[in-house]
Design a protein around this nucleic acid. Sequence first.
DNA 1: GGAGATTGGTTCAATGATTAGACTTATTTC
DNA 2: GAAATAAGTCTAATCATTGAACCAATCTCC
Lengths: 158, 158
Amino acid sequence: MRRAALDSVNCSIAQTLDVVGDPWTLLIIRDALWGVTRFDEFRRSLAIPRATLSTRLRDLVDHGVLEQRPVDEGSSRSEYVLTRKGRDLGPVLVAMLQWGDTWAELPAPPITLVDSTTDEPLDLTYVDQTSGRRLRDIPVGRRVNTNSASAAEQSATR
Amino acid sequence: MRRAALDSVNCSIAQTLDVVGDPWTLLIIRDALWGVTRFDEFRRSLAIPRATLSTRLRDLVDHGVLEQRPVDEGSSRSEYVLTRKGRDLGPVLVAMLQWGDTWAELPAPPITLVDSTTDEPLDLTYVDQTSGRRLRDIPVGRRVNTNSASAAEQSATR
DNA sequence: GGAGATTGGTTCAATGATTAGACTTATTTC
DNA sequence: GAAATAAGTCTAATCATTGAACCAATCTCC
């Protein structure tokens, strides 16, 4: 059967996975963050089958992550650009990049993130803005917010 | 045909997706971070088919993200606990949680991350440790590191 | 302006993966 | 010792993904 339906689960992570919980989808967004906009550019960059790319782009447009628009006035050729919602996925990709740099067995990190104005490498870390501490030094717990959804939905809350 | 093979692509994001680029996998890790360890606990929490859970857990153990060990000395029942490598996926899930809180159309964030010693809510943001600026204030670029892989592999670098 | 290449798809059959549900075996609990 | 629980495996059906072929616009270049 088809993939599990996650969009009704009352969990922000499940909701996010319902949109980008597919390897191709996140690779498309990665490329889009680097400025790729055209169908064939994605296809060549990712070596993704045309039909798969076609459905993924449609889904991302439907979810408001990409905006499809004609390359020129009245042109039938499209470009796909990230919306604000799509650009906000940057931290997800940064986190994946860092995990891969640390744990994938590559000889060296293939790319380095830099400040594009100064070309200085970035050293990105999750920090709690309240206490100033880094995430890795904090014992993280969670509080379940019971005010937001029905009791039935709560059973699916995480 | 089976899912695209990403493990040979010279990109840390693709390498990460090769391990966790599946919705079930990340939901399993989410639960594991909250302390879930047993097969049936995962199954009930996620409503995941047994066979699917079985293969996912095996794959995660093979990748060194989870460690499988007997519940007691000599017991045939297993518990699955995150390794260091697995716990390091925390930032990926934090990023997804925040994106879902912002962009999924839920009435309110279902959970709040807190410091478990003080119960204070956390306000986690990516910060560049060098300049002290927040990620969202930085124009991010990338530098491709050409010293690490062969020219042939470089064509697949992102 | 016409030939050929490029772009942006759709359609097709074959192959895998995912699923619900039945089944199994060992271990607890009562 | 009976029933319930835990941790899976097995099977058939269904669904998604894939490579390949096909197609209609559009663009380039002579």
